[in-house]
Lab assay of single mutants.
Amino acid sequence: HMTFVALYDYVASGETDLSFKKGERLQIVNNTEGDWALAHSLTTGRTGYIPSNYVAPSD
């Protein structure tokens, strides 16, 4: 899985969403939902949907 870094803070709007903080590292599990991606946080160990425009690929 590619690793991504959060560009902004995001507060989950539902139970299936994943909250994260700017700078948090995430792995995209499934990116077939258009503007949303299923992601796993390497920081918190949690998995949920995130807005895909809130993250960018990290080196």
Rank of each mutant, 00 (worst) to 15 (best):
S58Q: 13
Y10R: 04
S41C: 02
G48P: 00
T3W: 14
E24L: 01
S13I: 14
M2P: 11
T47D: 05
H1S: 12
Y10G: 01
D35R: 12
A56D: 06
F20D: 00
S19R: 05
Y10Q: 01
K22S: 06
L26T: 00
G45R: 04
K22R: 10
R46N: 08
D17P: 03
N53L: 09
L38S: 01
T44M: 02
G34I: 05
S19N: 05
A39Y: 06
S41M: 02
A12E: 04
G34H: 08
Y54V: 06
G48W: 02
M2T: 10
E15H: 10
G34E: 07
A37D: 03
V5S: 04
L26P: 00
D17S: 09
A37W: 15
Y54R: 06
M2C: 14
L18T: 05
K21I: 08
A6M: 07
I50H: 00
A12L: 03
V55C: 07
P51G: 01
Q27H: 12
T16W: 15
G48A: 04
S19T: 09
A6Y: 01
I50W: 00
A6L: 05
Q27Y: 14
S13G: 09
P51Q: 04
S41E: 01
R25A: 08
P57R: 10
D9M: 03
G45E: 03
L7Q: 07
Q27R: 14
L42W: 06
Y54S: 09
A56I: 14
V11N: 10
P51V: 01
H1Y: 14
A39N: 00
T3F: 13
T47K: 08
E24N: 01
A56H: 08
G34R: 07
P57K: 10
R25W: 13
K22M: 07
A6W: 01
N53H: 13
D9C: 06
L38V: 05
L7A: 06
S13Y: 10
V55I: 13
H40M: 14
A12Q: 05
T32F: 14
D35F: 13
T32R: 10
K22Q: 07
A56T: 13
R46V: 05
L26G: 00
A12Y: 02
F4T: 06
R25Q: 10
D9E: 06
K21G: 06
H40T: 15
D35G: 15
L18C: 05
E33N: 13
K22L: 04
Y49E: 03
Q27G: 03
T44C: 03
N30L: 13
V5I: 14
Y49T: 05
H1V: 13
N31L: 14
G14R: 15
I50G: 00
N31K: 12
Y8L: 08
S41V: 02
L38I: 06
L38D: 00
R25S: 08
L7R: 05
A56W: 10
F20T: 02
N31D: 10
D17H: 14
G34M: 06
N53Y: 11
G23P: 00
Y49L: 10
E15F: 09
T3D: 07
T47G: 05
D59G: 12
D59A: 12
G14N: 13
V55Q: 04
V11P: 04
T32E: 10
T47N: 06
S41H: 06
P57V: 11
A12D: 02
G48C: 03
L42V: 07
S58C: 15
G45F: 05
Y8H: 08
A12N: 04
I50F: 02
S13L: 12
S41F: 03
N30P: 07
L38P: 01
Y10L: 02
Y49W: 15
G14P: 02
